[in-house]
């Protein structure tokens, strides 16, 4: 049981951030499923998750500011609160990008995708693993395995490059595929961005825990 009002406030913020991270992860997985399965209910669910993430992020922001004003945290406590504000924004941004993917999914209610999705779902599950690494570190207040994060981020970059080349060749062969290929290209691009954000989140946790700056990109 935390002892001081500061510690209680920090624990509350920590659990909200963990919940927000879970929402972001779910939004990413759900948005790619919505696209792959052309499931409009799942796409609509992503919208809901995005809205939840906005509200939660705002709440974390308010709580953190209040804690800073009233408890004046310093040193590791200051780094913690600052990290929570930033990480909360990161997760909210991830949910935003997932919603953009869901928007693209909604265009395919009545028609087929250009091609069956293989690498894009792989990107999504890799992201889910990265967010889990972040969340576990936040939960246990330890540095995440940054090597693993970098490895996964590199994998995302590779998959993105692969998808990019594949889609460009589609477009070159048949310009009528440009619309659909561009959609998938955007999806891959969003996922690649999400991977960056998840990796940066891990680096932020390292600073929070150890006061040491690391670069993951």
């Amino acid at each position: 049981m935390p002892r001081t009002p500061l510690e209680r406030g920090m624990e509350e913020i920590r659990s909200e951030v963990i919940r927000l991270g879970g929402i972001a992860k779910q939004a990413v997985l759900m948005s790619v499923e919505a696209l792959k399965e052309r499931d409009m209910q799942k796409a609509a669910r992503v919208d809901e998750l995005e809205e939840e993430s906005d509200i939660l992020n705002l709440h974390i922001d308010e709580n953190s500011l209040k804690l800073m004003a009233l408890q004046q945290p310093v040193a590791r406590d200051l780094r913690f609160v600052n990290a929570m504000i930033k990480i909360s924004d990161n997760f909210e941004r991830i949910a935003d990008l997932a919603q953009k993917i869901a928007e693209i999914a909604k265009k395919y209610e009545e028609r087929e995708l250009l091609k069956p999705l293989i690498d894009i779902p792989r990107m999504a599950s890799t992201i889910a693993e990265m967010i889990e690494l972040d969340l576990e570190a936040i939960e246990r207040h330890v540095s995440p395995d940054t090597e693993k994060l970098v490895e996964k981020d590199d994998l995302l970059d590779e998959l993105y490059a692969q998808i990019y080349n594949e889609l460009i060749s589609f477009m070159l062969r048949d310009p009528r595929t440009i619309d659909d290929a561009t959609d998938l290209l955007f999806v891959a691009r969003y996922l690649e961005r999400i991977g960056d954000i998840a990796a940066k989140t891990g680096a932020r946790v390292v600073y929070m825990v150890e006061g040491r700056r690391v670069w993951v990109k």
Binding site: V74, A75, G211
Partner: peptide, 10 residues
């Protein structure tokens, strides 16, 4: 106040 080096300071 942001990042003391010594645990005792923190």
């Amino acid at each position: 106040f942001e990042n003391p080096r010594d645990k005792r300071t923190e």
